[in-house]
Structures are given as structure tokens and as C-alpha cells.
Design a binder for these strands. Structure first.
Length: 603
RNA sequence: GGGGCCGUAGUUCAGCUGGUUAGAAUGCCUGACUGUCGAUCAGGAGGUCGCGAGUUCGAGUCUCGUCGGCCCCGCCA
């Protein structure tokens, strides 16, 4: 039961509501009269003295209400509960010696209250604001307007605002034009599932919400906007993950008369500025950013977006096992397969039981098995110990660059090299978690270049672009890409950080003939080309300049820079994993009348 | 589409191999208290154990289904 029903909010506040914010107060002189407004954060009622921490957007300040405060101030203050909305008039007083609070910016002063108005009460709070006790995701989404008052959440909102502001400043300084592109757009084949919007005027036809402004940005530079940028919402109707949202925000930009490295430099300038200004307490792995080829990363880390904050580098051990009698490895080698592994120095040293668990982890990642060799001070243990001579072990340790001392060697084998690398790469991350190797104060930004243009889609028997089909191949492959696609490398470049892909960018194709040929190659015939992409192809034929661009995601940037575990935390109003807004209850049913106007009948 | 974890007081959680009246902390209510800042002290209220079936003498606990949340695989150029 709350007493709130018996307290009527004041309808006669002093206007304007406040003369100062709490952050102003420390600089004001003692005795100054101020008018403040905000939420009651915490209340400490001593019967005589009452202390209330007042929270406004800029901080906290302690209010002090004595029994001899004017009028009924003391009686009113005694009723106040956390999250009630208050206006107070008072004077700045120094706190008595010994009662200062060093953890508060206003900790040396307090407000001696002469008048207090209750602007509103909070009758029904599902959870506490001042108390940062974790709440369930259900609560977090349904009562987001309360969660947002928590400092832990509010600081992310402020951080994101600062980031976007700096992004705009950066692009304005560099002469980019900020241009908005349509939200009601066109469904295109390939890629993710579209979010569709039915048309009322064209019954049976649908707009699609943009997965990205990809075509519009190219058409803008073709239209003479040499440097374009936009903070763009992008929507994909695919299942979500901890690092993936239904709708997300990209810093979308495109430039003409540039080569790949010009775009990379522009992006790198932005990222370095954001990192140095927003997270000065964190270290960059390298500045300027290191560049890796796709192949090198796959071979060394088993991923095209590896976490570079730690080592655990993968090495090819195939040749060392050519003589071994261990049948599993032998047959793999005889069939042209590969054996790869990495070394994890102790600590931690994994027990037999933990090794069995890790084998289970490896299997869950899709590995066919895991061979481990645990090296102690004197001896070593392994399920294949009887096949391992001291000499072989020494050469193995040498191969995986194991420093002298204890540690564990993990090996995987298989026929398809990149599949083994992929599994081992994921397993590498699992080990890094258990070994606590992910330094939260390190930002391992890096570039990935020289991606293959295509991979062969065995299920659909066709070439599939690694990025998208508007990417320009590297110059030396332009003449051969259509006749010998698979060896082609592209101008695609990714920026990665701490195991996440931050963005993909590239030079774009600006010749119609090449663009048309690539479309043909991925299975889009002339008729479909005209129907879906006629506008773009004609635009390329209208004097399209060389151009390219990239689009880093705001959500992931905020997540990585702040070290948050989920992208959901970076947006003001997140949805559940299934894409439901538990607060607004959307998606929702609509009136029959609305459906009729759209020519839609539900099945 | 598939796998896993979770759902118990307003909130965060505990609750063993099934066994009397389901607990703790915090919040809330009442009272006391003039230097607290997670105020303190005393007392009190508060639960359809997500929902529905089933097994059982007996279900918060076991089984099946269902709803909801989260993580992962698939998917996401």
C-alpha cells in the first residue's frame, strides 16, 4: 500500500520550474537561493531532520529539511518517496565538517529547503531506479521509461548522443552532405528478408523498408553529391542475436572519385576520433589500424572477424602428424585434410573433467572432435598420449610457438580446411573466455582486405558474393571476373573490433557492362535485371563516376566502445528477441477497415 | 525450423532424492528517531510457485503440452 493516494500533487508550482541544475551548485556561493526540480532519488527521514537526494538530468544534490522549515515543508517532505517529482526552493549551505560525501559532485554542500512542492507522485513502480539491482529483460523492455532513469542506462543514451554528434561534426568538417533517403522503398532479391509495407493506392503491391540505403547512396553520388552521409535506419526481418537487431542504425557514407584506401582513411579518421574523444581510458591495439588479408586472418585466427585482443594463434600441424599411427589423423591426412591447433599457456591448466567439457563445447561448435595435449611441469597427458613421442611433442610445441612452461595444446582435424579453421576459430574464443584473455580496456580495431569476391553456394549451385553484387573487383581481376570468378579478389574491406564486424565497405562497380555481368553470374537474368535494377543500370550508363563507401553500425560501435554485452542495451526502446515491443505491444492487430483499404485478407 | 537455460512476494533470488503452515534480502505499510547519504531500530502486510493437463496418498519439485524471456545453430549479401 502506498500513501500516495492521500497526497495531492501541487498545482501551483513556482515558474519557471528551476533556476539551476544540480551540476551548477558546487560553483555557486554559499547562501545563494536556488530553485531546483527533479526526482526524489533516495529519502532518509530521521524524524527531525529529513534528507532527500534530488536527481535531475545532471546529477544529485542532497536536500535538508528541518522541523522549523517554513510552513508545512517538513510535513510534506516526510511523505516524499523515491521517484516522486519535486520542486524545491532553498539556499546553498556548506555541510558540517565530517558529513561531506566525497562520492558526490555536490558532496560538500546541501540545500537548506524553505519550500517544497510535490509536482507528482509515483504510485506504482515495478522496480527501483536508485537501486541498480538487475531486472529481467521483460521488465527492462516493458518499463523502459523507468529503466531509462537508471544511471547505468542513461549514460548509454548520453554516450550514443555524443557519438552521433561527433559523427555529424566529422562529416560536416569533411564537406559531406547529409541527405535523407526514402523509407518506403523497393523489395530486392538476395540478402535478408524485407520488412514489407502494403500500398493502399496500389492494392497487392508492397513497399519494402530499406535493409540499407545501398542503391540510393550510389544514385546520389551519380547524381552529383560527391560526398554523402546519413545516420540511417536499416531494417531486416531476420532472427535477432545478442549482437543483432531487427532495426539498426548505420553511419552511411559514400564518396565519388575515390579508391578503396581513400574510403578506408576517411573511416579510420572517424573511428580514431571517436575512440580518443569518447573512450580516452581505453587503449587502441594499433594506430594507424593494422591491415590483414582475409586469407591471413582465416589461417591465423579461423575467422574473418577475430578478436585480436589475445593470441592463441592457429598453426598448421598437418605435416607433423604424417608419420603418426593415430588412425583418425592419418586418414584425414591421406584424404588431403588438415590438422590445425593452437597453444594456450597456463594458467589456466584444465583438469581432465574440464577437457571433457571442452570437447563437448567443440562438438557443439560443429567440430568432429577435439584432441588436447595438457603439458604439466614434468609430464603431459592426452587421449592420444601413446602416439606422441617426446620429440613429436617438442616439434608440436615449436610449431604452435608455445613458450617454455605449462599449457594446453588444442587440435582439430578435418577434410575441408576452412571448416576446420572456422570451428577452431570459434573454439579459440571459448578458450579465451575461460582463460580470461579478453582485456576490457583494449580496443582491437583492424582492417580486413582482399576478400574473395565470390564463394560457391553448393546448395543453390551458384556464385554468391561475399559482400554484395555492387562491389568492384580489384583492378587486376576486372577482365577475368566474369570468366573465372572464384579466384577474384574484391575491393571489399571490413573493419573489425574485439571479435565483431563493425562494417563492410568497398569501391562500387560504375560500369553497366560489368554490373550486368556480375548480376548474370549470381543468377539474375536480363529480364529480372531490368525489372529490379533497371534504374541502377541506366544510371551507371549515364556517366557514373568511380565511387565507393561504407556504413559502420552505430549500435555496435556503442556496444564495443562501452564494452556492453548486448546491442539491445544501446537503444532507447529495444524489442524482445522475437521482435515484440513489450511496452507498446507491437506488432498488433489492426482494424478490419484498415485491412480492407489495403486490399488485404488474412488467411 | 532446431538445441539449451529460465519463469516462486512489487523487485532480485533460495527452496535437496516429491512430504506439515513456501523462505531470505530489498521494497511497501505503521511507529520511533535532528547528520544521514544502501540511514538505523521495532512491528506489520504481501504468493493462483507463468498457464493447462497428467503421474502420485501427496507436486513449487516429476512428465507432457502451452505462453513468455534470454543464449546459441540455421538465417542475417
Amino acid at each position: 500500500m502506498s500513501t500516495s493516494v492521500t497526497v495531492k500533487p501541487s498545482l501551483n508550482p513556482l515558474l519557471p520550474y528551476r533556476t539551476h541544475y544540480s551540476s551548477d551548485l558546487a560553483a555557486l556561493s554559499v547562501g545563494a537561493e536556488v530553485r531546483l526540480a527533479g526526482w526524489a532519488h533516495r529519502c532518509r527521514d530521521h524524524g527531525g531532520l529529513i534528507f532527500i537526494d534530488l536527481r535531475d538530468p545532471r546529477g544529485l544534490v542532497q536536500l535538508r529539511i528541518t522541523p522549523d522549515a517554513p510552513g508545512d515543508s517538513h510535513d510534506i517532505a516526510a511523505k516524499v518517496r523515491p521517484e516522486w517529482v519535486l520542486q524545491v526552493v532553498g539556499v546553498i549551505k556548506p555541510r558540517p565538517e565530517g558529513t561531506e560525501n566525497p562520492s558526490l559532485a555536490t558532496g560538500k554542500i546541501e540545500i537548506e529547503v524553505s519550500r517544497i512542492e510535490i509536482l507528482n507522485v509515483a504510485a506504482d513502480m515495478p522496480f527501483d531506479v536508485a537501486d541498480e539491482t538487475p531486472i529481467t529483460e521483460q521488465q527492462n523492455i516493458e518499463f523502459r521509461y523507468i529503466a531509462l532513469r537508471r544511471e547505468s542506462v542513461a549514460k548509454v543514451v548520453r554516450f550514443r548522443h555524443e557519438l552521433v554528434r561527433m559523427v555529424r561534426e566529422y562529416f560536416y568538417e569533411n564537406n559531406f552532405l547529409e541527405v535523407e533517403t526514402p523509407l518506403l522503398s523497393k523489395s530486392t532479391p538476395e540478402g535478408a528478408r524485407d520488412c514489407l509495407v502494403p500500398s493502399r493506392v496500389f492494392p497487392g503491391k508492397f513497399y519494402a523498408l530499406p535493409q540499407s540505403p545501398q542503391q540510393y547512396k550510389q544514385l546520389l553520388v551519380i547524381g552529383g553529391v560527391e560526398r554523402y552521409f546519413q545516420i540511417a535506419r536499416c531494417l531486416r526481418d531476420e532472427d535477432t542475436r545478442a549482437d543483432r537487431l531487427l532495426e539498426h542504425t548505420q553511419i552511411d557514407f559514400e564518396m565519388s572519385y575515390v579508391q578503396r584506401d581513400d574510403i578506408m582513411n576517411m573511416l579510420e579518421g572517424l573511428i580514431i576520433r571517436l575512440v580518443t574523444k569518447l573512450t580516452p581510458e581505453k587503449r587502441l591495439l594499433s594506430n594507424p589500424l593494422q591491415r590483414f588479408t582475409y586469407r591471413e586472418l582465416m589461417d591465423r585466427f579461423g575467422s574473418d572477424k577475430p578478436d585480436l585482443r589475445f593470441g592463441l594463434e592457429i598453426r598448421d600441424c598437418t605435416d607433423l602428424f604424417s608419420e603418426i599411427e593415430f588412425q583418425v589423423f592419418r586418414s584425414v591426412i591421406e584424404k588431403g585434410g588438415t590438422i590445425r591447433g593452437f597453444w594456450c599457456p597456463a594458467p589456466p591448466s584444465f583438469s581432465r573433467k574440464e577437457m571433457d567439457e571442452l570437447t563437448g563445447v567443440a562438438m557443439e561448435l560443429g567440430a568432429e572432435g577435439l584432441v588436447w595435449i595438457s603439458c604439466g611441469a614434468e609430464d603431459f597427458s592426452s587421449p592420444i598420449k601413446r602416439f606422441l613421442s617426446p620429440d613429436l611433442l617438442a616439434r608440436l610445441r615449436d610449431r604452435v610457438e608455445a613458450a617454455p612452461g605449462e599449457g594446453s595444446l588444442f587440435l582439430m582435424a578435418g577434410q575441408v580446411h576452412d571448416t576446420v579453421l572456422d570451428r577452431l576459430g570459434r573454439f579459440r574464443v571459448k578458450i579465451s573466455e575461460r582463460a580470461n584473455l579478453q582485456d576490457p580496456n583494449l580496443l582491437a580495431f583492424a582492417y580486413v582486405i582482399d576478400f574473395p569476391y565470390f564463394f560457391w553456394d553448393e546448395d543453390n549451385k551458384r556464385y554468391d558474393p561475399c559482400h554484395h553484387m555492387f562491389v568492384m573487383p580489384k583492378r587486376e581481376y576486372i577482365n577475368t571476373v566474369l570468366t573465372d570468378p572464384l579466384p577474384t579478389l574484391s575491393t571489399q574491406f571490413d573493419m573489425i573490433c574485439n571479435g565483431y564486424e563493425m562494417c563492410s565497405g568497398s569501391e562500387r562497380i560504375h560500369f553497366r557492362r560489368l554490373q550486368s555481368g556480375i548480376m548474370q553470374l549470381v543468377g539474375i537474368g536480363p529480364e529480372e535485371q531490368e525489372e529490379k535494377f533497371g534504374h541502377l543500370l541506366r544510371a551507371l550508363d549515364s556517366g557514373a563516376p568511380p565511387h565507393g563507401g561504407v556504413a559502420p553500425g552505430v549500435d555496435r560501435l556503442v556496444m564495443v566502445l562501452m564494452g556492453l554485452p548486448f546491442v539491445r542495451d544501446t537503444i532507447a526502446f529495444p524489442k524482445s528477441q522475437r521482435g515484440e515491443d513489450l511496452m507498446m505491444k507491437s506488432p498488433s492487430h489492426v482494424d478490419e477497415q484498415q485491412l480492407r483499404e489495403l486490399g488485404i485478407k488474412l488467411r
